[in-house]
Amino acid sequence: MKRYRIAIVEPATVVGEGITAILTRCGEAEVVCCCTTLAELSSHRAIRNDIDLIFLSHTLISDVASLSEWDAIPIIVVQSGLMSSEALRRFAAVVSIYSSSEEIVRAMHEAADTPIEPSYAESHELSERERDVLILVARGFTNKEIASELNISPHTVISHRKNIVHKTGIRSVAGLTVYAVLNKLINSEQI
């Protein structure tokens, strides 16, 4: 069974610990980091490539600059007050502090299946990590091999690949290979 690696960013300890307990109990998630601020999350750079999903307090969603660091990872907003649906639209899923355990687990699955919209940076430039993934895709690596090579989870590889498709507009492996060569990310001899 797939186990998602989760980061929780929630200033309210009781909420953070509650979500941790629900996710741990469902058996499909491992909470690798529970922080109270985005700055604290950023300080855990070593685990950045090892996180599949982030549960984020709605009180922190306006910090666009900090969020842009995490634009390759689906974010589930934890709502404890009223928010406009427009403000929440860019996130992969939304739960409330009143949500049941089942609803929270369902939101985790939904978010994991949602393609990432690179809306924070509003940029179609590939990130450094996306370029790394693209190069390996062009060299014929499978998702599993890419995950092993870059020391990230296969789920994160899939997220990066969705972003690459979204940003380049190219879907096939053959097309991505041409893209990588013409953009000088890889030599034609390497394919």
Partner: peptide
């Protein structure tokens, strides 16, 4: 679709 993207973006 990829052919169209490559012609627009990469040539």
């Amino acid at each position: 679709g990829d052919i169209a993207s490559l012609i627009v973006k990469c040539l």
